[in-house]
Design a protein around this nucleic acid. Structure first.
Lengths: 120, 120
DNA sequence: CCAACTGTATTATTGTACTGATACAGTAAT
DNA sequence: ATTACTGTATCAGTACAATAATACAGTTGG
């Protein structure tokens, strides 16, 4: 994981997305301990406060949870990884297709561009 | 054009993108007069100031220009529409593919998802 | 037990985007 | 010329994200 954030965009969503990606990739499995607030803060060059806030947002979605004094952990729920993965793919893909259709592109044209840009 | 902006995200980039889409779609052609700062402000429920700032950003990219007192116009440059269109498609497509590859998806899998979501 | 790590909370401050109000200046049509 | 539209500029106020600096509380392993 790189933790190189785009300082010109809101940080919390970026931190959340990075974590979700690691879970979707199965780099982090259910029950796994994840990096502490302060560790990530150091690596990502942000304030522990910002990481804390990001973690709390993911906690609210049931993706991770905390044990005071012990650390943060990936939800034990075995379906979480798959859910996060599918949600990520679905939202990104739908957004992309919508953006292309706004330009008036047909399905075939969209597929053509995807194929074309994959080979680069 | 809907001009329904997401108030939870920075407005200027959204306004810029809306205009770029209209140009890429050829709804606005080279030399066309575009909606005034105040008109858009009313429709998009934002301050004229915010629209002004957005227009200035597009001006800096050479996409539009202003004539004091007269209004804002699409660049006379005949290549602009095509440039904007290609740039839009390229950046969106590259971003999308990159996001999918981060999850470990192969080219074939990406194409599969695109096909699948187009039919919905 | 203790030291070193965790999460959590608080407060003050900064930077930035956007608002709202107002003013001035140039253009265009009647 | 007058009127009504344009762009342009400025300034104060608001809201929010993030920083910075602490402090406190719970957990863990030696």
């Amino acid at each position: 994981m790189d933790w190189e954030l785009d300082k010109k965009r809101p940080l919390c969503p970026q931190i959340c997305e990075q974590l979700c990606i690691m879970i979707a990739r199965d780099d982090l499995k259910p029950g796994d301990k994840i990096m502490s607030v302060r560790e990530v803060a150091l690596m990502a060059q942000v304030t522990p406060n910002t990481v804390q806030k990001s973690y709390e947002q993911l906690e609210q979605q049931g993706v991770i949870y905390s044990r005071r004094g012990a650390g943060w952990f990936v939800s034990e729920n075995q379906e979480i990884a798959q859910d996060v993965r599918e949600q990520y793919i679905r939202s990104k893909t739908e957004d992309y297709i919508k953006n292309m259709q706004i330009l008036g592109l047909s399905g075939d044209e969209i597929e053509k561009y995807v194929k074309e840009f994959i080979n680069e």
